[in-house]
Design a protein around this nucleic acid. Structure first.
Length: 901
DNA sequence: ACCGCCGGGTGCC
DNA sequence: ACCGCCGGGTGCC
């Protein structure tokens, strides 16, 4: 599976290689000052200095130990003070005064990052040597050298570390791509779920459960640590600590979607439910089912529906059927009964299957708060209802489990109440909203376990969500993701930080020990990374095999491309637009301003792609592209209009700050689109100097232009009255009609990136009497759940067709009722297409899945496909190593290839 | 004796 | 610190 983020995976990435991530990232890559913590850079050289004040340090310093240098501008004795800290940040000593002046200067002016390695360890009680190396951007080299020599220090050139074998970029890329593959250790056993789980686990789920329990209870030393005498020694940083380093209690469950991560996690929570004690039969309540699970189960102690206002969960829960069968006492009470389980007998897990004893192992971790018992599940809103459904489905009806949905304005913020639950479910948004306020309840509770569902959501450490997640207080930590990060090493850090994989949860150690070595092709760096990932991750794909047998058997899936010929009239219109676009773009190419005018370029490309689908997609705003704007204000206005056009089609844009789909989009005066909260944060933190993350143009809060999300609608009648078909519409309709005549039980997904195209398609579908539903990004959570349920239902008269916008709803939606997929327009990002297809090609699919891609012959669509193919062959473009100017060139080349210039 | 020299006290920043 | 530095004690050899 791929997990890259694209600049509008639905439409606007010009690249499709694992290297150049997105257009926005590529452009961002040209201005490295954007990286607040640049993790790359060149080595300027190193010099020997001395560390004083060692007498105040009680620890040991080893030969070769890595230390970090911390500026202390507030130091009362010297405002230039530079502290030397060990791997955990504890003070080892200080840089001697004269040298500190120099370092302070370099560090405060951001001329270089300074790293320390202790060459001999401690030789006496008072001082020791340290080798300082200076890393930074090439253009700062002179300034750094000048600083150093002017203070009569001497910079030794060249790398100080030993040379290790380096990989070629291809080897590196392959190794990195495989980071998350084959992580299944055959040695892990199987573990049965406790009886409270009423769904029998599949073998691979039992393995996952066994592995997860082992991860939570294993008291062995974490990787890279060894016992050395009285101390614990880290083999990577060469540091020793007195206190036993704790193993991560948790990990990353990165199974492909559809393999049952939710079920396995539920089984984990119930099995090893508290303090190492599984949920036993004592937990199966004496309360009659009827008392537990009627409507009241949806209410909080004040008697209000806990999920009344927005929740998509509500749609499934307020449904009487599911409420009746819901066996969970959601937020029932805070009365003492809930404590019973603490005294419950250890039971259920069949002896012999599990290689460890949960109780003993867990209790050996002495610093845990024994009172912690609640598991906090954080997920995107779109899958909240899935958790509730799954609990409903998989937990035995007579088990009394306190599950609280922490969502909505009426949510109960009482921390004692929350702590007393068995499970609390919430969303990333609620978490970060709480976090930004004062005294966040979720951050006050001492959790037993925190589970991040769709954990790749927090791959960017700069977002509020990520910061909020890192601050949670919990003993055990899990990340569930079906799309582990593949292409960007930096994304991995966030996962490592959440898991508190010491010392890599601190950026500097991650950068020095893992990220920089790996990106520079260092073999040991890569080995270390592989080991690191391997010891915390379990990943199986749909094609994984256990003992030669497939994990799960899925029906076949085949793709066929159907070429569409334009009619004479369509061809003429298309060619006109194409010629116009070429003129404009070739001018930009000649001027070398393609990237500066990219809003314009995007608009031209999207227009051509719309022509390929249906002329009705173009909207009325588009007039001409050839006219040269006179004033800068006019130019800006025009660019803004174009972006409105682009966004208005329903295409998905990526915010360059959070790397997610834009929410609450705003447009800067330089015509770049961001989430309002994201860009507001940039402006707040950079104040007057705030610059556009994409083009480095000045930005001001007052100049942000709102983007109106919905405007159209009225024109559906307009479309109907002046109805005109298109070649692509006809191609689809004839396929659908043929299919219906052959087998009217087959259901289809009709997928487009352009929501308006979906609207257009409704007309002929209605005309031909097809029953269909529609799912797109503008729909409320509640409505989505309804639509999915309707489509999945096998009741007579349920819809045969679902109109689906490419990225609607994100991952995790189950559309297994469909076995045909029609991809109406090519996406820049094949991963987005794959994900879309995966919604029906998943567990539960009974038929072979046939995917049809419509491509207009002799059009930009063909070129898109061609470029994608070419890129897949260009393996040597390994991640992150390409320099920005090369990237820019290839980007421009792609645009030229698309326009045949 | 407004110096040099000796030796004890002292010590990160 | 088996140093350097400071400041008090001391004073031909």
């Amino acid at each position: 599976m791929q997990s890259r983020r694209w600049f509008g995976g639905a439409g606007f990435s010009f690249a499709d290689d694992p290297v150049t991530e997105t257009l926005s990232q590529a452009i961002r890559g040209t201005g490295e000052e954007l990286d607040r913590e640049p993790d790359t850079g060149v080595l300027f050289g190193s010099l020997r200095g001395s560390v004083v004040g060692l007498r105040y340090y009680t620890g040991v310093v080893n030969k070769g130990e890595m230390v970090s240098l911390v500026r202390q501008p507030q130091n009362p004795y010297d405002r230039n003070a530079v502290m030397v800290a060990n791997v955990y940040g504890s003070q080892v000593g200080h840089i001697k005064r004269e040298l500190a002046v120099l370092l302070a200067n370099i560090m405060d002016n951001n001329l270089a990052r300074v790293e320390g390695v202790v060459p001999f360890g401690v030789t006496n009680q008072f001082t020791m040597s340290v080798v300082l190396s200076f890393w930074g951007r090439e253009e700062n080299r002179d300034a750094v050298v000048r600083q150093i020599t002017s203070r009569s220090f001497k910079l030794q050139s060249g790398p100080t570390g030993t040379h290790t074998h380096t990989h070629t970029l291809t080897q590196l890329k392959n190794a990195f791509d495989n980071l998350f593959e084959n992580l299944m250790d055959d040695k892990i056993g199987e573990r049965e779920a406790v009886e409270a789980v009423c769904t029998p686990l599949l073998p691979h789920q039992k393995q996952a459960l066994s592995w997860m329990c082992a991860c939570e209870n294993n008291a062995a030393l974490p990787h890279f640590w060894e016992v050395k005498g009285e101390l614990f020694y880290n083999t990577l940083t060469h540091s020793s600590v007195r206190e036993r380093p704790r193993r991560v209690r948790g990990g990353i469950l990165a199974d492909d979607m559809g393999l049952g991560k939710t079920l396995t996690t539920i089984a984990l929570i119930l099995s090893n439910f508290h303090h190492g004690k599984p949920l036993s039969s004592a937990w199966i309540s004496e309360c009659p089912v009827s008392e537990l699970c009627l409507y009241m189960s949806l209410k909080n102690p004040e008697g209000k529906c806990v999920c009344s206002d927005i929740s998509g969960a509500c749609s499934s829960l307020t449904n009487v059927d599911s409420a009746l069968s819901l066996s969970l006492s959601l937020a029932l009470s805070r009365s003492g009964k809930s404590g019973d389980g603490d005294q419950a007998e250890v039971s259920v897990a069949p002896a012999g299957h599990s290689p460890f004893s949960p109780v003993e192992a867990a209790s050996s971790q002495s610093t845990d708060d024994p009172a912690a018992r609640a598991t906090l599940i954080i997920c995107p809103l779109s899958v909240l209802s899935n958790w509730l459904d799954q609990l409903d489905q998989h937990v035995r009806a007579d088990v009394k489990l306190n599950v609280y949905l922490y969502y909505g304005s009426e949510r109960n913020r009482d921390t004692h109440f929350l702590s007393s639950q068995h499970m609390v479910l919430t969303t990333y948004n609620v978490l970060s909203a709480d976090y930004s306020g004062s005294a966040s309840p979720l951050h006050t509770v001492r959790w037993l376990r925190v589970v991040l569902d769709e954990g790749h959501i927090i791959r960017n450490p700069n977002t509020q969500q990520s910061k909020a997640v890192l601050k949670l207080n919990t003993q055990r930590r899990w990340i569930l993701t079906g799309t582990p990060i593949q292409n960007n090493l930096r994304d991995l850090w966030m996962l490592v930080a959440f898991l508190r994989l010491k010392p890599f949860d601190v950026r500097e150690w991650w950068n020095r020990v893992i990220q920089r070595p790996v990106t520079q092709g260092d073999k040991t760096g890569l080995q270390n990374l592989q080991a690191l990932v391997k010891c915390v991750t379990l990943r199986r794909t749909k094609t994984s095999r256990v003992c030669g047998r497939p994990l799960v058997s899925l029906p076949e899936r085949s793709v066929r491309i159907e070429e569409v010929e334009l009619t004479q009239k369509e061809r003429e219109e298309y060619e006109l637009a194409r010629t116009e676009g070429r003129t404009t773009i070739s001018r930009y190419v000649a001027e070398g301003t393609v990237l500066r005018n990219y809003a314009d370029v995007l608009a031209i490309l999207v227009r051509l792609r719309q022509f390929c689908c249906h002329p009705g997609l173009l909207g009325k705003t588009t007039t001409h592209t050839g006219v040269v704007a006179v004033t800068p204000a006019e130019l800006r206005e025009r660019l803004i209009m174009k972006l409105r056009l682009v966004l208005g089609t329903g295409s998905d844009e990526e915010c360059a700050v959070c790397l997610d789909s834009v929410r609450l989009p705003v447009i800067t005066h330089c015509a770049h689109v961001y989430c309002r909260p994201c860009i507001a944060e940039v402006i707040r933190s950079e104040q007057e100097q705030a610059r556009c993350p994409l083009c480095r143009g000045q930005i001001k809060a007052s100049e942000l232009v709102e983007f109106p999300l919905e405007e159209e609608e009225e024109e559906e009648s307009n479309l109907l009255e002046n109805w005109r078909s298109s070649s692509k519409v006809e191609a689809l309709m004839s396929s659908l009609l043929r299919l219906r005549s052959e087998d009217d039980s087959i259901r289809s997904l009709v997928v487009s990136q352009f929501t308006r195209f979906l609207t257009i398609l409704e007309i002929p579908l209605r005309e031909e009497g097809f029953k269909f539903v529609r799912l797109d990004g503008t729909m409320s959570q509640k409505r989505r759940a309804q639509v999915i349920q309707e489509f999945q239902s096998d009741a007579p008269g349920s819809p045969l067709i679902m109109l689906l916008s490419l990225k609607a709803g994100g991952v995790g939606i189950n559309l297994s009722a469909a076995s045909r997929v029609f991809l109406m327009d090519p996406a820049w990002n094949p991963a987005a297409e794959d994900q879309c297809v995966d919604r029906c090609h998943r567990l539960g699919q009974k038929r072979d899945v046939v995917i049809t891609k419509f491509i207009v012959k002799g059009s930009v669509e063909e070129n898109m496909v061609k470029i994608q193919r070419q890129k897949q062959d260009l393996v040597e473009k390994a991640f992150g190593t390409k320099n920005p100017s090369e990237r820019k060139t290839s980007r421009v080349d792609e645009i030229r290839a698309l326009m045949e210039l």
